[in-house]
Design a protein around this nucleic acid. Structure first.
Length: 900
DNA sequence: GACTGAACGTA
DNA sequence: CGTACGTTCAGTCG
């Protein structure tokens, strides 16, 4: 028998009162510090979650459950209508957070339960009884003192004090010490003393001391009642007068421990949480620190429940290479996971080793510096063989590292980062570590089987890097198989194979090539902007008669603008009042204070100076700038450019445009060519909506905004004034972003009514556009995702949110994603087309940059005409649409001069 | 040193 | 109360 008991797993059950803990947090944490950028209050969720994490860490329970009050109508209120009547109405800011709290629990896979007509504590009492009867240990966390009655040698209670910053650990001794009665008598004591928070009055003049004395003397409340006539004095009289109330209190504070529950203790066993969901939910709540703490605290425990990767098969060493990867060798056509150990950044890098894992269970690790020429030749041939299938994670960087060693990489059949991105493009991270957990439910580590525990410990330290690389190679291979299924399910197989993977190679070449810059001109520009910035700073200081203000500090500026100069307050930000350019311009109109003019000038020039400074820092030894394109960042499918970002080089102002003059044609080339799609997003909208009017606009060849303006304002195209045109232009573009009448009015400085009128007029003429926009959101709501012309999906679960801000935000994303995303698809196709055609025609000209709707090409001598024709052809023919894809091209010695 | 929010550049 | 990004700075925290 005792053997049986020993073998039973120990159970430690943690029960939390969701309602009372969240309510405590709601009042303890200042809401100003706990709100999302969309205005959702999160203080209650935050406080509860923080406490939950702490308790999980400190108590390490095996089972967890959370109880909720379902409504305020309980059997207690039926018996005593004034029950809890003293409490103010539950604030909407609190109840609005309860669904979020449940989302957190769901993501953490913690069960929660509530029973109509009963309180959370009754649920807790029921589960506690069940657990205690089964011989389990129980920890209860609640802010409700009624639960003290449940404390026993098996049951501990954690009671939050000082808001939620601390908990008292109440075992029987602690309860007795604090209340002078044993836990099972606590409710008797509370009935006598009363509970103000529940609006249960006690006996006047009787506090815990007196009550405890009586209970000690007569055993329990029944004993006190039996001897009620023996109690002398004023308090005795009071007791007799209030006896009914005391007995009622006792009936009400007795917790119900025999509820019918939809789940039992075994259902509360802790499961590993849904990592993806945790990221999504915590991202939404903007709980960054808390999420990190969660992962940090429980990473180890998660490890325990998940496996690693086998490295048990044959190990291939350098001398084995010809046998495995030589011509006709059996490993040649076998898919392998590959990991290149190396680095690449800003045009330079190196590769030190290659690890691989084959489908037959073999692994290998090859130190590239230790290979004989013959061995290296075999490896190089295998790596470069387009028919030798390989799978990598984030192939571009590794491909770059290899290329720095003169090695080519072909035959990449999947890239697990790209595949995961296509499956769910808005993820925080596509690190291999995360994907392995997310899609395989395992950790990125070597498997240590039951028989060979400690094997890893025996391995020497310098083997650790090798083993890690091989584990990664194995993980990539396995991951790619799972992701292939996910991709098939979400229709992304072709996108990966035919679009994103071919793009990897093109982007890698663009990065390695870089774009030439005129360094002396760049330096001169920095000096010029620097001088103008200092002049503006002097003027600004002069205007306010002090020099101790950092013009780059919004905080100090607020002090000057609103305190010293007493200007009217601007729009609120999280931390004060905005000092952004719009607001400053607004203040200038109102006050005409010279400080504002100088300040704005300082903003502009210092920003330009900083931009130039950043560019100077990133010029490589070859006097070119090598950006890095990231293919897995933008949820819509766009690329992003970083280190430096060459997709946000100024163009709108004349001063800013000067920066584009320093991006020049490189030595041995003839000119730079800039080719961009005109109004591609509007054309996509015309195509997708099928709106006859808009399609006609593009087919007519008339200026788009003039054409639309003529329809909207009911005039001849020739009579569209510049003001009419700019209004229509703003509206056309705004539509693709989900612009509201309010937003339009704000932008055009007209009344909301006028803006609404404008929109009505627009939709009356272009009804197909309105129908399309409505349809796109409706479909996304039905399917859960939007899709681009090539089927690139974006999932938007927030379309179903009962939080209005989040829902409406998701609706705007749903409007925009197919349009922006289709444009991204199109230019990616165009890049493939242009790159392929340049190669096919044997041209030396090459693509240097992509800026969302623009390609910058470096034109080799004598190729200008051919390349222009080729680019126009390939960009224009990227997809077949109901409207033409108009490409506009310019050529010059600099990026600025190539503008058109 | 790591992180956040404000501000601002692009499509 | 208009989408999608990346970078910089000041300010704050540990």
């Amino acid at each position: 028998m005792s053997v049986m008991v020993d073998r039973l797993p120990r159970v430690k059950l943690l029960l939390l009162d969701g309602h009372s803990l969240a309510y405590r947090a709601f009042f303890a944490l200042p809401v100003e510090n706990f709100s999302t950028s969309t205005g959702q209050h999160t203080n209650a969720v935050y406080g509860f979650t923080a406490m939950l994490i702490n308790v999980l860490r400190d108590e390490a329970p095996t089972h967890v459950g959370v109880a909720f009050d379902v409504s305020r109508k309980t059997f207690r209120a039926d018996e005593y209508p004034d029950y809890k009547a003293g409490r103010s109405v539950t604030p909407a800011e609190f109840s609005g957070q309860l669904p979020l709290l449940r989302e957190v629990l769901d993501a953490l896979r913690i069960r929660h339960v509530g029973v109509e007509g009963f309180e959370a504590d009754d649920v807790i009492a029921t589960l506690t009884r069940q657990a205690v009867e089964a011989g389990h240990e129980v920890v209860i966390c609640t802010g409700d003192r009624d639960a003290f009655q449940l404390v026993s040698d098996k049951v501990t209670l954690l009671y939050p004090v000082r808001g939620v910053s601390e908990v008292w650990r109440m075992d029987p001794a602690a309860v007795t010490e604090k209340y002078l009665v044993a836990p099972e008598r606590y409710s008797d004591l509370a009935a006598l003393v009363g509970e103000s928070s529940d609006n249960l009055p006690g006996v006047p003049g009787v506090g815990p001391k007196t009550a405890a004395k009586w209970l000690a003397q007569y055993g329990d409340l029944a004993g006190v009642v039996a001897h009620v006539d023996e109690i002398k004095g004023k308090v005795g009289e009071n007791l007799r007068a209030h006896l009914d109330g005391v007995l009622r209190n006792r009936r009400l504070n007795r917790l119900v421990d025999d509820l019918e529950l939809p789940l039992g203790v075994p259902d509360l066993e802790r499961a590993s949480w849904d990592r993806e969901e945790v990221h999504r939910v915590f991202d939404g709540l903007e709980f960054r620190v808390l999420r990190d703490r969660l992962f940090q605290t429980f990473e180890v425990e998660q490890d325990e429940v998940e496996g690693g990767f086998e490295l048990e098969g044959e190990v291939v060493h350098a001398p084995d290479l010809p046998l495995r990867f030589g011509d006709g060798a059996h490993g040649r056509r076998m898919p392998h996971g590959v990991v290149v150990v190396g680095h690449y950044r800003g045009g330079g890098g190196d590769a030190g080793a290659v690890a691989f894992a084959g489908e037959d269970g073999t692994t290998g690790y090859l130190d590239l510096t230790a290979l004989t020429p013959a061995e290296e030749a075999v490896l190089a041939a295998w790596l470069a063989d387009p028919d030798a299938p390989k799978v990598l994670h984030d192939a571009k960087e590794q491909l770059q590292a290899l290329s720095c060693r003169g090695l080519e990489l072909r035959g990449v059949r999947s890239d697990t980062a790209l595949a995961a991105y296509l499956v769910r493009p808005d993820q925080r991270s596509f690190d291999l570590e995360d994907l392995v957990v997310r899609h395989l439910g395992r950790e990125l580590k070597a498997e240590t089987g039951a028989g060979d525990q400690g094997m890893l410990d025996f391995a020497a330290d310098d083997d650790a890097a090798e083993r890690e690389a091989m584990v990664r190679a194995r993980a990539v291979l396995e991951l790619s198989q799972v992701l292939a299924t996910r991709l098939e399910e979400t229709g992304g197989t072709e996108l990966l194979r035919d679009l994103e993977l071919p793009l990897v190679d093109i982007l890698a070449r663009m990065e390695r090539t870089g774009i030439a810059v005129d360094e002396p001109a760049l330096t001169a520009l920095e000096a010029d902007f620097g001088a103008k910035m200092r002049q503006a700073q002097e003027d600004a200081w002069e205007a306010i008669g002090r020099r101790d203000v950092n013009l780059g500090s919004p905080k100090q500026l607020q002090e000057v603008l609103f305190d010293q100069l007493g200007m009217p307050k601007t729009k609120r930000t999280k931390t004060g009042y905005t000092t952004d350019a719009d607001a400053l311009a607004d203040l200038f109109v109102k006050t005409e204070h010279p400080f504002l003019e100088a300040l704005l000038r300082h903003r502009d020039t210092s920003r330009l100076r900083v931009t130039v400074e950043g560019l100077i820092k990133s010029v490589a030894p070859d006097r070119r700038i090598h950006t890095t394109y990231i293919q897995t960042i933008a949820a819509t499918g766009r690329l992003s450019s970083t280190d430096p970002n060459l997709q946000n080089v100024p163009i709108r102002t004349e001063e800013g445009r000067r920066i584009r003059e320093v991006f020049v044609v490189g030595e041995g080339f003839e000119s730079l060519m800039s080719a961009d799609y005109s109004q591609i997003e509007m054309r996509i909208m015309a195509h997708l909506s099928g709106d006859e009017g808009l399609i006609e606009a593009f087919r007519s060849g008339e200026d788009l905004h003039r054409f639309v303006g003529a329809r909207v304002f009911g005039v001849e195209p020739g009579d569209v004034t510049p003001a009419m045109r700019s209004k229509v232009k703003a509206m056309s573009y705004g539509l693709a972003y989900g612009l509201s009448a309010f937003g339009l009015s704000k932008q055009l400085t007209i009344t909301t009514g006028e803006a609404q009128g404008l929109m009505d007029e627009y939709f009356a003429r272009f009804g197909g556009v309105r129908d399309y926009l409505r349809e796109v959101v409706a479909e996304a709501r039905a399917t859960g995702y939007t899709a681009t012309m090539l089927g690139r999906r974006r999932y938007l679960p927030d379309l179903m949110s009962d939080n209005r801000q989040r829902r409406e935000g998701a609706e705007r994303m749903a409007l925009n994603a197919p349009i922006q995303g289709s444009a991204a698809d199109i230019i990616k196709l165009a890049m493939k087309g242009v790159d392929g055609a340049l190669t096919a025609e044997g041209a030396r000209s090459r693509i240097l940059l992509q800026v969302h709707d623009e390609l910058v090409v470096e034109v080799a001598p004598g190729e200008r005409e051919a390349v222009e024709a080729l680019v126009r052809r390939e960009m224009g023919a990227a997809v077949e649409m109901d409207v033409p894809l108009d490409v506009s091209i310019g050529v010059g010695r600099s990026w600025h001069d190539a503008a058109h």
